[in-house]
């Protein structure tokens, strides 16, 4: 990665740009100046500036794919934990199948403890998060292995144009779902799943290094040969 050199660490309140630029996440405008609002790595292009957080909890964004845990069921909706400060709500009408909430108990469809793959549909100004299971691949996750990593490192696990994750999927022949909230679900042969877990944990640890995709690939091949 060439632009790795241009990235530097900034702290909240530090002036990172001036004048007419487009703002990404982690920055705010103060008069003519643009300041960082979080600690992290500064990414600056011609007319765009943002700060990549080093760590932190998941902050929901509309359109994000998340892996949620059903924590409670109500007469009219489910409560879902999305590894965030905010709980999410799933309405039956956002389920991928038509449900007559008057006729069927929601408990029979999703019960507390179930893990689901869903998408963030709406966030109200009071930070009520609504998720939906209308996205492609939305489903109840059965079996497999669940992994939680630092949500700030998720973009690295996915890679540029999902290069990293599709490489891992191909090499270990597992089905992998990555939620933006830091939860990753892997299903496949147990020994291959172990390799995938090892690889993902290494990506999380070494997210700041460049040329990671290649070294992860050789690591997976090496591990696979040991089997």
């Amino acid at each position: 990665m060439k632009d790795n050199l241009s990235r530097r660490m900034v702290i909240p309140g530090e002036v990172v740009a001036e004048g007419d630029v487009n703002l990404g996440s982690g920055v705010y405008r103060e008069g003519d100046k643009v300041c960082a609002s979080i600690m992290g790595l500064l990414e600056k292009r011609k007319s765009f500036v943002k700060v990549i957080p080093l760590t932190g909890r998941y902050i929901p964004k509309v359109g994000d794919f998340v892996i949620g845990k059903v924590t409670d069921v109500n007469l009219t909706h489910w409560y879902v934990d999305i590894n965030s400060a905010y709980n999410a709500i799933l309405n039956p009408r956002d389920y991928f199948r038509d449900i007559d909430a008057f006729q069927t108990s929601l408990l029979k469809i999703l019960a507390p403890g179930d893990m689901i793959f869903a998408v963030v549909r709406e966030i109200t100004p009071t930070k009520k998060v609504y998720i939906a299971m209308t996205n492609r691949g939305a489903r109840l996750l059965r079996g497999g292995r669940l992994l939680t990593i630092n949500p700030a490192k998720v973009p690295r696990v996915i890679g540029r144009k999902s290069s990293m994750i599709s490489m891992i999927k191909k090499e270990v022949k597992c089905s992998i779902l990555v939620g933006q909230n830091g939860r990753i679900w892997i299903k496949g042969k147990p020994e291959l799943v172990e390799i995938a877990v090892k690889a993902i944990k290494r990506i999380e640890r070494e997210a700041h290094l460049s040329g990671l995709t290649d070294s992860i690939k050789s690591m997976i091949i090496e591990e696979r040969e040991k089997l």
Partner: peptide, 11 residues
């Protein structure tokens, strides 16, 4: 705390 079924089965 509610434990996911996946974790239960895994352990």
């Amino acid at each position: 705390e509610i434990v996911s079924e996946i974790k239960k089965d895994y352990i």
